[in-house]
Design a protein around this nucleic acid. Structure first.
Lengths: 357, 357
DNA sequence: GCCGGGAGTCGAAGCGCTTCGACGACCGAT
DNA sequence: ATCGGTCGTCGAAGCGCTTCGACTCCCGGC
């Protein structure tokens, strides 16, 4: 009906001369549909009852005009940006594919909750978090690669915005954390190997730097391995392991020199798997005939290796999904558990067997 | 001076009863510093001259109150969100570490330009782009993993927001694109090998799916290899290559069965490097004594392999930085080149040598 | 026939910021 | 003295949206 008027008003008399953005606004939609601005808003948000006839008229106007609500205006008025921050690590010792899977899962899940994801790297440090949160750019924060005594933890506590940590700091009070139960994962590996009859095993863990900075998952896996080994009467040697072929070779060689009777390896470092296989082959040991191998790594990776690896998959996608739904819960003021530990499971493939044939 | 008044007004008489957010606003800063709101704004933006004494008074009030400008309000008023979108691929055949490096570089560079990064995955498709851009959530868009005939390209052309593509579509008119000069990279590999005296070489390329969907870099590398091979009188066989050990083994075996005299391999698929080394070792061929290997992959990866690989690094960081500074240029309305191709360079390491000793 | 109450809609008041025009003060040039 | 011009500052008008009353119908219960 009054499309012409709309055009006229926007074209000629818009504001005090500022350039119009070209995008239709909610007012344009209201005019086009012959309703009040607030009605359009309620159609979109569903926060008040709207008659079916009005609703569909508004929706069709929206479609006709190609209207998309302005994010800034919406954030300002509603105090919700519909964006969550994802803080990713980018330093050494991270498992790139795991991080990537995780990020992907977070973005996908966030979209399902009608949120977008703002990407931060942890090297901006606490200041970046504060900027983002205090400026109301994001409604909530997901932090990955949390250390036992992470400097960001106190900040998160008093930030006034929902946050979820991926990984466990030493003190989880007043926080929300998700992670794989790495302690249990370590146990599972040992139990599997012990069940097969192995009596002397080794854990090739994460790079040294990861232990040093107190990243929880590395410590917890090691603890699980040691604990279960003791419980099953298995001898377990553990050592960190860098991500390059040279160090892996060196470690493996040294390991068998000192403990020739080791019959199984647990590998936590995905990047170490291939070099380790090479090293074993070079020393004339076959998998699984001479040495069994269990990996803690993405399932797909283990499946593509040769031989296919028995592994405890890191369910990056599941963790990502959980993390998102936990922040969303907190955004709705629902109570959420302080710590969510996902149960690991062990997938048996071709790299483990009874020792000594 | 009037801190008490501030407290009082915000505490008791704030608005019509809506809860105050707790964050200080620009009005609080203005009051605290005893100046007008606009003056604070100009101190922050530098868009008008402000006396030194006023400026420092305002800045100190900002520090005292812990003021952070509200992103939504700023975006609304200035029509700038100071956020750029980064569209990442998450499908098969992508080189995860490269993507990660790239994302990292983008975030870091964006921060240097006072922008944040919103992460999108390409599986939301064009609709996601439209939503983000039309809703003014972002000022500009970076799109990775562009195909030759990408559906998003027409959309980007008419989006009304600056965008930069990483990778080259078939038609680059009215666009801005950055990429490594993969054609030249292919040539470089061949030239290096030809210079060493190799006469029969093979390219183990990207996974088949990557060629099929017309991702530029794979085609361009292959073209460069073929072209340079012809020019140097070298026989070149090219074939796609999946990312799992089984396919690599199979490819390598088949290759040498058909062409026993091949003395050098070019590998484009980072994930194929390790399995390929294993396959060569299994067939009793040593690198570089029996077969030379050149990889197109991240430098760090090549340096950590054993033997250390001669390679043409993919300068993900550099591309990321370039992409960001190109969008920033476009945001400032500066003219930018349509296509930016970064020159590749070849790093000689231990995996290439003259053929037949 | 009257009242209470839900359903459906509207108008207007912000949300916190940027930016434009205006204005006083002060300068040097006429 | 007078005029024009900077410099520094202020006030106010939005930016496009959400949300809170308030208002009008209309229906059922008594």
């Amino acid at each position: 009906m009054c499309v012409a008027a709309v055009q006229h008003e926007r074209g000629a008399v818009s504001g005090r001369g500022r350039v119009a953005s070209g995008q239709p606004t909610i007012a344009d939609v209201a005019r086009h549909a012959g309703v009040a601005v607030s009605t359009v808003s309620y159609v979109l948000s569903g926060k008040r009852a709207i008659s079916e006839v009005t609703r569909s008229r508004v929706l069709s106007s929206i479609r006709v005009l190609g209207y998309h609500p302005n994010a800034g205006a919406r954030a300002l008025a509603s105090r919700r940006s519909n964006v969550i921050a994802l803080v990713l690590p980018l330093r050494s010792g991270i498992q790139v594919p795991v991080v990537m899977q995780f990020a992907t899962a977070v973005v996908t899940s966030a979209r399902r909750h009608d949120h977008d994801v703002l990407l931060l790297t942890s090297d901006e440090g606490p200041e970046g978090l504060r900027r983002i949160a205090a400026g109301a750019l994001v409604d909530g924060v997901l932090v990955m690669d949390v250390e036992l005594h992470d400097v960001r933890v106190p900040l998160l506590r008093q930030l006034g915005r929902p946050s979820v940590l991926i990984g466990l700091p030493a003190d989880t009070s007043e926080l929300t954390c998700v992670d794989l139960d790495f302690h249990r994962a370590g146990q599972l590996c040992v139990e599997h190997l012990a069940g097969l009859g192995h009596r002397r095993i080794a854990l090739l863990g994460a790079p040294g730097a990861v232990y040093d900075r107190g990243t929880g998952f590395a410590h917890r896996t090691r603890a699980g391995v040691i604990e279960a080994a003791a419980r099953h009467g298995v001898d377990a040697v553990t050592m960190p392991c860098e991500e390059n072929a040279a160090d892996v070779h060196h470690r493996v060689a040294g390991l068998f020199a000192r403990h020739p009777d080791i019959s199984a390896l647990i590998v936590q470092n995905e990047a170490a798997v291939a070099p380790m296989q090479a090293a074993l082959a070079a020393s004339g040991r076959r998998v699984p005939d001479d040495v069994s191998v269990v990996a803690v790594c993405p399932d797909q990776f283990a499946d593509h290796a040769s031989p296919r690896l028995t592994c405890v998959p890191v369910p990056a996608e599941e963790i990502g999904r959980q993390a998102v739904s936990l922040v969303m819960g907190k955004l709705r003021d629902e109570p959420v558990p302080e710590v969510t530990l996902l149960p690991p499971r062990l997938t048996v493939r071709d790299s483990t067997a009874r020792p000594g044939h």
